[in-house]
Amino acid sequence: MKLRDIKEILNADVIVGEDKLDIEVKTAFGADLMSDVLAFAKAGSMLLTGLTNTQVVRIANVLDIAAIILVRGKKPPPETVSLAKDLHIPILTTKFILFETAGRLYAKGIVGCIEKVESGSERI
């Protein structure tokens, strides 16, 4: 699915990356805990989050995240927008809550970047 389709499904606004809507995305990870994003999100996935600070963009950059989708009607502050522009990471915003965002994308064929995390086991 193209990022352009994600935009339609989520009725999203494109804050950064209007020129990148043709990238292909197949997987997603949703969290508001940056340590969990670092631990589990995979390269090429979308990151669905309610966090809007610059850390989200830096982590997305370190992990080669394809695009950041801000949920629950959150708007990124100017410093987040400018860092995302510098690092060429698309940011879309949707008013849907995380549960609805995930549900709607899942119904259209997007899957988790991993399915499960084994409890307390080695996670590499």
């Binding site: 997603a28 990870f29 949703g30 969290a31 589990f40 669905l48 849907f96 809550i97 995380l98 549960f99 609805e100 965002t101 995930a102 549900g103 709607r104 994308l105 899942y106 119904a107 997007i110 899957v111 988790g112 970047c113 991993i114 399915e115 499960k116 995390v117 084994e118 409890s119």
Partner: peptide, 19 residues
């Protein structure tokens, strides 16, 4: 053990909706 995205997706597909 499912991640949040999968958990939400699976429940949504079974009829649970956002609050």
């Amino acid at each position: 053990q499912y991640i949040l995205f999968e958990t939400a997706g699976i429940l949504y597909s079974k009829g649970i909706v956002g609050c």
